[in-house]
Design a protein around this nucleic acid. Structure first.
Length: 680
RNA sequence: GGCGAGGUAGCUCAGUUGGUUAGAGCGCCGGAUUCAUAACCCGGAGGUCGAGAGUUCAAAUCUCUCUCUCGCUACCA
């Protein structure tokens, strides 16, 4: 890559309803940062773009729960997230936010442009509105009496008794399942993106990289899972997707009839990349359009695998349909990072939070960067354990890289007062070592350009290994007694290698790289000259002690609040006794059981509730065989509205306890009870 | 059930278009060494590449079947 190019690099916008954890860093931000640092070092013109994604229903719900405004929620989290990035050296050119005025204007304008072009379809319907919750209800949140067969418990979209499909507004005595009250009918209009119209060019573009007859990118450079998942969606047929919502938190819909509606988050969030670029360009006297509308610019989205279809299908449709905009050259999506044998979970607090890591391991951000890159989930899910973290820091950063630096510099101080000794006559071995600096740099460059950051970093560490081997083979501490000239050459070569290492590790370990330069008293030199005075070296890395990792494991398993099961979900919102008494839970006996003919997870049960004998469909087939449950006494919610499940009407619900791993157990009375006995 | 991605040494993972005795790091065993944070360096053991069948002179690599794991999806009220 001799030619300088322009790049727009984005990293997935973090959702501002909580802080960042290890998985975020390993999945998107660290690889993006390494890539950007590499590109910038090569002199390319790069805009590294990110920001907080601050809209969506989840944030309004959290605000309700914490009794504050959505703005307060996102303000708080935006700052925490922004600080974590800064602390870990994720060096965005701008970290913007979607609640900004500029973003609202940008997203609004793009929506309007598309609207004016007729890119959307529009549908106005009467929908039920829950006045207590002040929100529109999806059809399945409304129940009532079927107008055709008069049976109770029909759903907004279908009566499962008589099988006729309905509109929610045909129901007699409609009830909101949210509040239990009667909703009112209100007219609402929504806009849809007819993705189905774009299937053809998308398929060609994904499979061949050809767009409008031109080779736009090389699909062999895309990761398998990205192409696989996009193709899977396209081949299954794309559906029109609603892109507006009846909500009051977000970007207002800027067209007639849009009052009280906002753009759906996944429409507005990726546009955040564009608005952030605009802000950055304005702040730095650049033209943002160079970064989004010039076909020579490479647009690259770093994301986690949960985001593949948005960046591989939906956002490209928006960009292409709008015109002008370029499409991504690549979407290097990572898989997921697991933690100590279990998937990372925010709600169960099974996570290592970045801001807490730095409290426990101050100034050790490069250590974490190193470990996360060496286990980066590039091709499959991978696993972070504290024991492995300790081993990699101690055996690689401390023992290989730190040790080599320290040996070279300490020996130079010891024998030559810290001045770079003359290179003298080079042996074949010396030349091989010097040559290895260049060849390693080249290999690392190639690997980074192929988005293989893990392998690239391994190559870099291999060069440090060579340094240790070189010293072990040449033994300057012995030779110093007999052949000082030779020792000079050896240490000169070692120090050149140190300088080379600081350069090669720069994208991966920016802080360490500059510390090495400081030890070497070097700034922009590519070679250390004779008699160049070095600074005193400190240890680059400290060992991680057993106690420190044990404390982390302990913290994970027994978090601040003493609870016997750290993986237990948090308590739900408080309810009243009246709420509880609405539920009619009874002892019942399973009389018969068979597998549901059309579903994997379902059993069709016949139960004696004491009141009647009825059919219940229950999702326990993966945990119990039919013959094992017959005769069991269980607890059952008997007054739950009936519902047809996979074609069989189910009346009531068997109560089950769930284990951490998701296995189920019945809630049975500890001695035989009469069927129909109340549970209270 | 449908779709996608995986199943390679004790552990974490590489193996690009099928081609000599299947690799790395850690761990383990042995050796060497002392400049260095008991660090480094050298050597060794360890794998019927998830199972079975097929294509081929040749398969971890291609095809089919089965099986297990992860993700999306339908159904889990």
């Amino acid at each position: 890559m001799e030619e300088k190019k322009r790049y727009t690099i984005t990293a997935a916008l973090p959702y501002a309803n909580g802080p960042l954890h290890l998985g975020h860093l390993a999945g998107a931000y660290l690889p993006a940062d390494i890539f950007v640092r590499y590109l910038k070092a090569k002199g390319n013109d790069v805009a590294f773009i990110c920001g907080s994604d601050e809209h969506g229903a989840a944030i309004t719900l959290r605000a309700k729960k914490e009794d504050c405004t959505p703005q307060e929620i996102v303000d708080k989290n935006h700052e925490i997230i922004k600080k974590s990035f800064a602390d870990f050296g994720i060096d965005f050119d701008i970290y913007h936010r979607t609640s900004s005025k500029l973003h609202h204007e940008t997203a609004s304008q793009i929506f309007k442009d598309l609207y004016d072009k007729g890119s959307f379809t529009q549908e106005t319907t009467n929908q039920f509105f829950d006045q207590e919750h002040q929100q529109f209800l999806a059809d399945r949140y409304v129940t009532g009496t079927c107008p055709k067969c008069n049976s109770a418990g029909a759903y907004g979209d279908q009566c499962e008794k008589c099988g006729s499909s309905l509109n929610a507004n045909e129901l007699i005595n409609p009830i909101s399942t949210l509040s239990g009250k009667t909703p009112v009918l209100k007219e609402t209009t929504h806009w849809f993106l007819p993705m189905n119209k774009h299937e053809k060019w998308l398929k060609t573009w994904i499979e061949t990289g050809i767009l409008d007859g031109k080779q736009q990118h090389d699909p062999t450079k895309w990761r398998k899972q990205v192409i696989g998942q996009c193709k899977s969606w396209i081949d299954n047929g794309l559906q029109p997707r609603s892109i507006t919502r009846d909500l009051d938190w977000g970007v207002k819909v800027p067209v007639e009839g849009g009052e009280g509606k906002v753009l759906y988050v996944w429409f507005d969030a990726p546009i955040g990349y564009i608005s952030a670029t605009k802000q950055w360009a304005a702040d730095n006297s650049k033209n943002w359009e160079d970064y989004w509308k010039d076909s020579n610019t490479q647009l690259i989205h770093f994301i986690g695998k949960d985001n593949i279809v948005f960046h591989g299908i939906i956002f490209p449709i928006i960009l292409k349909e709008h015109g002008d905009f370029i499409l991504p050259t690549n979407v290097p999506a990572n898989e997921f990072l697991n933690l100590e044998g279990d998937k990372i979970s925010t709600s169960r607090n099974w996570a290592v939070w970045l801001h807490e890591y730095l409290e426990d391991f101050p100034n050790k951000q490069d250590e974490l960067r190193y470990v996360l890159t060496s286990i980066a989930p590039e091709t499959k899910d991978s696993e972070f354990t504290w024991k492995d973290f300790q081993a990699r820091v101690n055996n690689e950063l401390v023992a290989i890289l730190g040790n080599f630096l320290n040996r070279s510099i300490v020996l130079t101080h010891k024998y030559f007062e810290g001045k770079v000794p003359e290179q003298g006559v080079l042996t074949d071995y010396d030349n091989q070592v010097l040559q290895a600096i260049i060849s390693t740099q080249n290999r690392v460059d190639e690997l980074i350009e192929s988005y293989r950051f893990r392998d690239a970093q391994t190559e870099a560490m291999t060069l440090a290994r060579l340094g240790n081997k070189y010293l072990a083979d040449t033994e300057p501490w012995k030779l110093v007694k007999t052949d000082e000239t030779r020792v000079k050459t050896i240490l000169n070569v070692s120090l050149q290698l140190c300088l080379g290492l600081s350069e090669i590790f720069k994208p991966f370990l920016p802080k360490t790289s500059s510390r090495i330069k400081q030890f070497l008293n070097a700034t922009n030199e590519t070679v250390l000259t004779n008699q160049h005075q070095l600074n005193a070296a400190e240890l680059l890395f400290q060992k991680i002690e057993d106690e420190a990792v044990e404390a982390q494991i302990e913290k994970l398993k027994n978090p601040t609040v003493k609870q016997s099961n750290p993986k237990a979900k948090p308590m739900k919102e408080e309810i009243t006794f009246d709420d509880f008494t609405k539920m009619d839970i009874r002892v019942a006996t399973i009389l018969a059981a068979e597998k549901h003919p059309d579903a994997d997870k379902l059993l069709k049960l016949t139960v004696d509730t004491g009141i009647d004998i009825r059919t219940v469909v229950s999702g326990i087939a993966e945990h119990y065989k039919p013959e094992d449950v017959i005769g069991k006494q269980v607890s059952m919610l008997v007054n739950l509205a009936p519902r047809k499940i996979r074609g069989i009407e189910s009346k009531g619900m068997i109560l089950m306890a769930e284990n951490n791993e998701g296995s189920l157990a019945f809630i049975s009375p500890e001695k035989a009870m009469d069927n129909g006995g109340e549970v209270k």
